[in-house]
Each structure stands twice: as C-alpha cells, then as structure tokens.
Amino acid sequence: MSMDLLPILTEQIQSGEAMAERFGVTRVAVWKQIQRLQNEGYPVVSEKPKGYRLLPGTPTPAALQAHLKGSFGQQYHYFGTVASTQDVARQLADAGAPHGTVVLAEKQTQGRGRRGKVWSTPLGSGLYFTVVLKPQLALSELSLLPLMAGVAVREACGVGLLKWPNDLITEKGKMAGLLLEADVRGEEVHHVLLGIGINVVPEGLPEGAVGLGSHVRKVSRVELLARLLESLETWLGMTELAVLSAWRKYNGTLGRKVRVQTPRGLLEGLAVDLDARGLWIEHQDTRICITAGDVSLVEPVGRQHHAEG
C-alpha cells in the first residue's frame, strides 16, 4: 500500500503506531516518511514518544478547504520547498490554470521580492504564496492591481500601513510585501502572477506564541490565508474610486517625505497624492508622478499621516 502521511497529519498528535497500523506498514516506515516530509520543508513536529503533528495553523489543502468562502484557492498547490512559487505558478498559468489558482510553499530557495531582492522564508513563520490572476482589465488599468492587492492584504491582516508601491509596514518594519508579474500578449493581459509574502510570527516570541508582524496576537496562518484570498477576490471587483479611497485610508506614505530610487536617479520630496498612474510627490515646487521605483520613508512610521487636499 502506498503511504502519503501529509493528508492525514493534523495539529493533534498521532502515534506512529496508529499510522503504521492504518497503512499496514512498520513504525520505522512511518518514521522514514516523517523524516522525508521534514526534509522537504513541511512543518511536521516529532514529539517522542507521543507521535507526530503539524505546527498550529499549517495551511494544508484540507485545512484551507475548511475555511474557504470564495473561488480563490479552490485550485491549491501546497509544497514544502520550491525554488519560487512565482516560477511554479507561471508554469501552471501557461498550462491553463484558472483564475484564483494558488501556489504556496513553506520554504522558497529562490524566493524574491521587487527588483530581484531575496525574500526570507523561515519555516512556519509566514505565508509565502502566488495567486494566478486572469483579470478582465485593459492594459491601462493594470496599474490598479497592486493597489487592489495592497488593500486586500491590509484588510485581511487588520493592522499596518501601506507603503507605495507594494509593502505593508508597521513601526517595527516590513510585515508584508507584494510582487506582480504580468504576462502581456499584444494588447491583452494573458495572466498576472501576484506573489505575496507575510511575516506572520515575529522574531523573539516564546515557543507556541503567535503574532502578526510586530503585533502579538493570536492568528492562524491557514485562517489568515483564507481571509486574504476572500478579501483579494472581493477587491479585484471593486471600482477605481473605491480602491483609491481605501488605499488612502490605510496609507503610510502620503503626507510623508520620501526618497525614490528611479531609473533616472534618486529623488526626494513630499508624497502628496496617489492615483492609477502612480505616486505624486512634490519636489522643488513641482509635482512629479512616479510610476515605478523603490520608495523609502525619510521619517519613521508612527501615527498615520494624510495628505492635504
């Protein structure tokens, strides 16, 4: 009999003897399969002599299915370790994966953020996944997607401020980041790969504690994932006005001095507005629209700022 332990593992401890009896194998065979899962990156905990369990909130397919409320995530690919969820999702999208397909890995060996930056993925302490999107958008509307996604992440997490273009931050640093890669063919958007990384459990917490970013409070990774997918599906259907209004509400960028690394060099000014075209900053009495670039805040994040007008 073939043995696949992952679908039967839960947060509750199960003895190796019981699993061996279920599959008609030896306890040694079970132990070897547990080791294989651990080596592949799955958050399986061994508690001798009691048995084996998953870390609380592990987003297995069965656990996620129990919490889903929409179509996003119905097609779900869960891995222990991959090079990059973006790469796996790209292959699936090219093969015809439907809108809302999700690829999640506990560990990425080549996970990356904007402009090729490496994204750290400590085991069991975050959510690192890619959603395949096939939006009915014109090319001119494509720039709204990262704003929609940012609002969806902020509403699902319930804490943090949005830093243009793709980050959710707190006073202690980055909590979540987004990476969008669009496959544009002619005048049509074939698909978009939305990569999301969320630091769910902050460093320095005692074993067994859970938190979200720098805010220590109970949160389940699988419940947060389901909530985020529902929020994302909702916000992708919203109007430009609604998206911009919500982004401004949650923003941690407008009203602050920023430095922007653009292809033409470093630019510093006051972030005064945002629209579908990009971020507007005031520089030497001139308003400039930044359509792409890495933004850093000159002042630290404390209370939320709002631009005037």
Rank of each mutant, 00 (worst) to 15 (best):
G116T: 01
A152P: 07
A156W: 08
C157A: 14
G150R: 08
A152Y: 07
A152M: 07
G126R: 12
T109C: 04
G160Q: 00
V102N: 06
K107E: 14
G124D: 02
Y128T: 12
L104I: 13
M148P: 01
Q108E: 13
Y128H: 14
T130P: 03
D167A: 02
V131P: 00
A149G: 01
A149Y: 03
V151T: 08
P122D: 08
I169K: 12
L168V: 07
C157M: 14
G158Q: 10
R154F: 06
R115M: 14
L162M: 10
Y128L: 11
A152T: 05
S140F: 10
L168W: 03
L133D: 04
L139H: 01
T121F: 10
L137P: 00
C157P: 01
L145D: 00
P165V: 12
L123K: 11
G126A: 11
V103Y: 01
Q108Y: 06
V132A: 03
G116Y: 06
G124S: 11
Q110H: 14
A152D: 11
F129M: 11
L133V: 07
L162H: 10
S120N: 15
K172L: 09
V151I: 11
L127N: 07
V153G: 05
K134V: 07
P165S: 08
L127T: 03
L168K: 02
T121W: 06
W164R: 01
Q136W: 13
Q136F: 13
R154Y: 08
T109H: 06
A105F: 07
E171A: 15
K134M: 09
V159Y: 12
R112M: 04
K117L: 10
I169F: 13
S125T: 14
